[in-house]
Amino acid sequence: MSYLLRVTLIALALLTTVSCSSKRMLTPDRTLHPSIHADRAQMQQAIVKSLVGRGWTVQKITPERVQAQITVREQFHAEIDIPYSATHYQIIYRNSSGLDYKDGKIHKNYIRWVRLLDRDIVRDLKDNQNERTAQQLSEAAAK
């Protein structure tokens, strides 16, 4: 294989790798399904439990917002805000380092962290709903 062809193939491979590491920013904006009944405290608890379970550090909790950050391998750092109500929450990017944020794009690791966090929050709310339903059925059967 000629030298020029090798260099061209290596350059293309590097460009492909670099372009795949940044993805369009993910900002989950979730309204709960009507079958999931939660109050503000239960929503806050599900958010905090999911953050801690995923290795995020909770920085601040108010009745309307949770702020958190994560640092992975002392190289990647991200900060988020999660405004919430009893029926809705959003995961909003606040700041980062080492994740190449630029022009609405960010490293795919951040996207994965946020997607998993979103999934865990919904799962926790569904599990709590199922527990409440089971308890109500048990109480009704005991009467």
Rank of each mutant, 00 (worst) to 15 (best):
73 R>Y: 06
74 E>L: 07
75 Q>M: 11
75 Q>P: 00
75 Q>W: 05
75 Q>C: 01
75 Q>I: 08
76 F>H: 13
76 F>T: 00
76 F>P: 01
77 H>S: 14
77 H>W: 13
78 A>R: 02
79 E>M: 10
79 E>C: 03
80 I>T: 03
81 D>S: 15
81 D>F: 13
83 P>N: 12
83 P>W: 11
83 P>V: 06
84 Y>K: 06
84 Y>C: 07
84 Y>P: 02
84 Y>L: 07
84 Y>A: 06
85 S>H: 06
85 S>F: 03
86 A>C: 01
86 A>Q: 06
87 T>G: 04
87 T>A: 03
88 H>R: 13
88 H>T: 06
88 H>I: 03
89 Y>P: 05
89 Y>W: 13
90 Q>T: 12
90 Q>I: 11
90 Q>P: 00
92 I>E: 11
92 I>C: 02
93 Y>T: 01
93 Y>P: 00
94 R>S: 11
94 R>V: 10
94 R>F: 03
94 R>W: 02
95 N>W: 06
95 N>T: 07
96 S>E: 15
96 S>L: 07
97 S>Q: 13
97 S>N: 14
97 S>C: 02
98 G>R: 09
98 G>W: 13
99 L>V: 10
101 Y>H: 10
101 Y>S: 03
103 D>W: 09
103 D>V: 02
104 G>Q: 03
104 G>N: 08
104 G>I: 01
104 G>L: 05
105 K>P: 00
105 K>M: 12
105 K>E: 12
106 I>C: 07
106 I>V: 15
106 I>Y: 09
106 I>Q: 08
106 I>T: 08
109 N>S: 12
109 N>Q: 13
111 I>D: 05
111 I>W: 01
111 I>G: 01
111 I>F: 02
112 R>M: 05
112 R>D: 11
112 R>Q: 13
112 R>F: 07
112 R>L: 08
112 R>W: 04
113 W>F: 05
114 V>K: 02
114 V>Q: 02
115 R>E: 15
115 R>L: 11
116 L>C: 04
117 L>N: 07
118 D>V: 06
120 D>G: 03
120 D>N: 07
121 I>G: 02
122 V>A: 03
122 V>N: 05
122 V>G: 00
122 V>H: 04
122 V>M: 10
123 R>W: 02
123 R>Y: 09
124 D>W: 06
124 D>T: 15
125 L>F: 12
125 L>W: 08
126 K>Y: 09
126 K>G: 00
127 D>H: 08
127 D>A: 15
128 N>Y: 03
128 N>C: 02
129 Q>I: 04
129 Q>V: 04
130 N>V: 08
131 E>N: 09
131 E>H: 07
132 R>E: 12
132 R>V: 02
132 R>M: 11
133 T>A: 15
133 T>Q: 15
133 T>H: 05
134 A>L: 14
134 A>V: 04
134 A>M: 10
134 A>Y: 03
135 Q>L: 15
135 Q>F: 10
135 Q>G: 06
136 Q>W: 07
136 Q>H: 12
136 Q>K: 10
137 L>N: 12
138 S>F: 06
139 E>L: 14
140 A>P: 00
140 A>W: 03
141 A>H: 07
141 A>C: 00
141 A>S: 09
142 A>E: 14
